[in-house]
Amino acid sequence: MKQLKRIHILILVLTFVMILSSGCTNKVADEDKNDARQLPAGGKEVVIGVSVLDLANPYYVQLLNGIRQGAATRNARLMIDDPKSDVNRQIQAVEEFIAAGVDAIIIAALDQNALEDVLKKAKDHDIKIVAQSTKVDNCDIFVSFDEWDMGYTIGQVAGRWIRDKLGGQSQVAILNYPRIAQIAKREKGIRDGISEYAPKAAIAAVASSANPEEGEAATLQILKQNPEIKVVVGINDGGALGALAAFEKMGKTADDVFIGGIDATPEAISRIKSDSLYRATVDINPFYNGILDVDFAVKLIKGQIVPDAHSENAVLVTKENVHMY
């Protein structure tokens, strides 16, 4: 009896894996076969490999949703890999895309140096490359919101706030995220924006946080050490919303407090609408960017001429225009 069971377990392990992956892939498999017939004949459907930074990050989930939407309307099939912020995994993904014979790759590179060689290889295979958010060598087009510009947009508002409501002088806290190199440019933009309008404002505290939990913990700590802080600017809404929670917890709800971030997440929008201390965010519309990416990729595959770079302007969202959201 027991030996019989042992075999059952083995078969279970075996079939479980099979069923799981086949359950997920059946549909794609069918598309695959169609695809194999169409492509050599120069058919209409194109295949695009997609690798963004990290699908645990809502920004990239939205970008991907846009890419999906764009692909659906342009008869493109997607091959998606989430590198989970791991550069090596992203390199692997590009290798897999090359082996699978995709027509184009949309990539938000984690590290431009690390991706250089493998993207060159992709280019040698005549694969079109759309670089999203991070500029890479060998790309056919670089689609982005400039990181510095994003930071500068929110920094300017904070600077004007300090000039107009705080007499030009205030202690400022910045919530940054040094683990991702390109976000450093965003932080620089924030600093430049603030100092342009409020040169006397002092950056009194800098802490790393990218989500509400980290943002709240960091801000509570900062406020304990430095109760004078009236302005907090985050490199994203996640961290800055945590700062808002911290201010509310400590009962610091004075009219002259400014908290702002970047991304225009639904929660940030609703906080701006509800007259909280959350004054502004920056809309970088990743969904629209995703549609743009596919659009450019398809144009490139068809041999149409596209610019080397396409930059969308970041849109500031404040009390004045928040009703549009």
């Binding site: 894996v17 799981l20 992956s21 997920c24 892939t25 794609v28 498999a29 695959d32 699908l55 997607l78 091959m79 998606i80 890999d81 989430d82 989970k84 993904a93 897999e96 082996a99 699978a100």
Partner: peptide
């Protein structure tokens, strides 16, 4: 498993589960 799931386009979240 990892390569095959990417090539056959199993979503990332499902990959983690597998």
């Amino acid at each position: 498993l990892s390569n095959g799931m990417i090539i056959t386009n199993v979503g990332d979240y499902a990959q983690r589960i597998v």
